[in-house]
Computed example of a mutant assay.
Amino acid sequence: MPRSAPNILVCGTPGTGKTTLCQQVAEATGLKHINIGDLVKAQSLHSGWDDEFECLVIDEDKVCDALEDMMGEGGCIVDYHGCDFFPERWFDLVVVLQTDNSVLWERLEKRAYSQKKIQENVQCEIMHVIVEEATDSYREEIVHVLQSTTPEDMERNVEQLAAWCRTWRPSS
């Protein structure tokens, strides 16, 4: 049965504005915002802590199992830095946010990330790791890369995604 509302995945390097964008788009459209990091913590969908990367090690199978019914219903905007483990059938649009490296560095410093973690994330951004992951994992026509450096970028991205939701029609 086709979904009555779209599902959107918003991904990108930490600090690119995924959560803020998703919250604002959800508010503007009525989509349900699902922050995967929060879901993993709330439902213990992980296999412990990774000291080297200073983060929880998510159990991708458990995450997908927890999301299956919600994604089938539609109307979700999912927020996570990675994307390659989510089934392609879930998403009507995949958005990759990118941020200028100097701005990204400052944002991650404000989060009190270690220098190593900042360097790794900025390197990911420089190398377009998430863009490549998205284009390798999803149909080219549903992947869109959006700049997310300034407040004006954020405003434009919210407007663009809200407009896309208003015109979305289920595929047959």
Rank of each mutant, 00 (worst) to 15 (best):
Q160V: 08
D136C: 09
I130Y: 05
T29I: 01
G75I: 02
T29G: 02
C64E: 10
N157Q: 11
M71D: 11
S137G: 12
T16I: 08
D61C: 09
V57A: 10
Q160E: 13
T149S: 05
C11I: 07
V131N: 09
E159F: 04
I142D: 03
T99R: 02
T99H: 01
M70W: 06
H128P: 01
P6V: 09
G12V: 06
R166F: 08
D84S: 15
Q43F: 03
L108H: 11
T135R: 12
D79G: 09
I58K: 07
W164R: 01
R166S: 15
G37H: 07
D100Y: 10
E109S: 13
R169I: 09
C83P: 01
C165H: 00
E60W: 07
C11W: 04
E155K: 07
W164D: 02
G48S: 01
C76N: 15
R89M: 10
G30F: 14
S114G: 11
R166I: 07
I36W: 01
H144G: 08
G75N: 01
H46E: 12
Q147M: 08
A112R: 15
F86E: 03
Q115R: 14
F86D: 02
L39P: 00
V25D: 06
D79F: 09
P87K: 05
L45M: 12
V129T: 03
